[in-house]
Amino acid sequence: MKIVYYVNQFFGQIGGEEKAGTPPQYVDKAVGPAGGFQTLIKDEAQVVGTIICGDNYFNEHKEVALKEILAMVKDSGADLFVAGPAFNAGRYGMACAQVSAAVQKELEIPALTGMYEENPGLEEARSEAYVIKTGDSAGTMRKALPLMAALGLKLLKKVAPGLPSEDGYFAQGRRVTVFSDKRGSVRAVEMLLKRLAEEPFVTELPMPVFDNVPPAQAIADLSKATIALVTSGGIVPLGNPDRIQSASAQKWGKYDISGKKALKGDFYTIHGGYDPVYANAYADRVAPLDVLYELKEEGIIGDVYPYFYTTTGTGTSVASSVAFGKEIGKELKEAGVSGVLLTST
């Protein structure tokens, strides 16, 4: 049986961020993690090829990239498709997720990937493909691969996967009716007794998440509005005075930009997730103060809020992002800001 593997430019051993724009290529051997995967599954199946694609290429040319990659998978005659693991790398995660989902859905070839629970790719893939739970960095590769190999073998042999907790994957969201060895009323009484004894218990129906924020009212008169500029692109004053982390940020920064016409020259990026050259040359390419200032001068907007807020989005936990948003939002609300322009990289 045949396996085709997908990795990015880094794990495909082509290069780092500078090669992130590389289009997909097919190599007819196991490269990088594919080699480890091959070792784990022994001779039960063979990794016949590795597809290597730059993260930026994929994310910026998604339709073309998907088409090319799907064609490669199809031509290979694979019985199983494996991508990643992407750990907490957002762009790599999105690529692994979308390719896996498409392979499963369009080619109907079982697809498997792996990533960290906060990777934004997770939601793109989990309902279609199987996504193994991994740690947040490549340091956990040795834990991730055996789980992926074990589930991969099940998928190859058409053995129904066990519960997510048994096989180490993220629940796909399928709620399957099964028989319990106890009737419902007994389970209810037992759960009640646990609650009364303040012992741990597991609900059988976690409340569904209705996580939509109602859209805020539009600004009635832009010419009187104060607009704040916020970015998760890691743009900070030269020297990074507050030592904001380049990845997995634990804090945000706030900098006085009153009277400034642009960020260019005084600001640069400390973001660890993208090629910094262009932002360092011209920080307004990430946080466009220059145009906002122009629009203010022209009277299209009333004012630019005198403080600029910034943090790094890459690898930053959802919990942290939520906390940052709450703290920043509170300040902006209290300052009477009319609207926010937030850029992400």
Binding site: D211, V213, P215, A216, Q217, A218, I219, V230, S232, T311, S321, V322, F324, G325, K326, I328, G329, K330, L332, K333, V337, S338, G339, V340, L341, L342
Partner: peptide, 13 residues
């Protein structure tokens, strides 16, 4: 971040 700021009723793009 986007949603948390919008929760304050501030429109955000």
């Amino acid at each position: 971040m986007v949603k948390e700021i919008e929760r304050y009723g501030i429109p955000i793009i």
